[in-house]
Design a protein around this nucleic acid. Sequence first.
DNA 1: AAGATGCCCAACCGCTATGTC
DNA 2: AGACATAGCGGTTGGGCATCT
Length: 194
Amino acid sequence: MDKKPCKSQDVEVRKGPWTMEEDLILINYIANHGEGVWNSLAKAAGLKRTGKSCRLRWLNYLRPDVRRGNITSEEQLLIMELHAKWGNRWSKIAKHLPGRTDNEIKNYWRTRIQKHIKQAEVCSSQSHSELLEQASTSQVPCNTDMRETYPPSSFNHFNMEAFPGQSAMSMAVESYENYWSMEDLWSMQLLTGD
DNA sequence: AAGATGCCCAACCGCTATGTC
DNA sequence: AGACATAGCGGTTGGGCATCT
């Protein structure tokens, strides 16, 4: 894939965050030519990126059907259910969440859910009744050992909104609002598209 | 007020699977 | 059959931002 070392005559390969201009070039190119072979696409579009990088950017961010913003509690439940079934098969899980990417789900799992599983481990030393009481009052995120209660049927009594990821969530939404939206980009693409 | 710490997420890396010649 | 190219996947990292002390 990208295993070949860069030849001296090769153009310099850009890394790091994508610029708005690069996004537009990629969107434009795919809108006009479709998603062909990524390496050739990158070259043909004039992007100094690897095909791999272009593919990732497109799939995780630029595709028009990518849904961004909060993971709903329904999605949250589904993620947990599917993860219980398949483990870290993120792409497989993502296929069941339209508009969500494997990367997004993976990040979500690692930053939110896994954290709570760890917390649950710590809390597992506490008595069951104590934990139930805490869970019912939604004051403390610790639940009974989540790995045991993991089968989705056991989540009925589990108040997902008790997850204190709210601040992070609202933060994410806020930060997202500060970016130009995909709608902006697509409308720009329509304006500049040939 | 400012430095330290923690969290989130976009992007990269390395590996495997699959397709093509 | 096997060598090579490409796609796809999962793990990891680094930067930016928010919160804490």
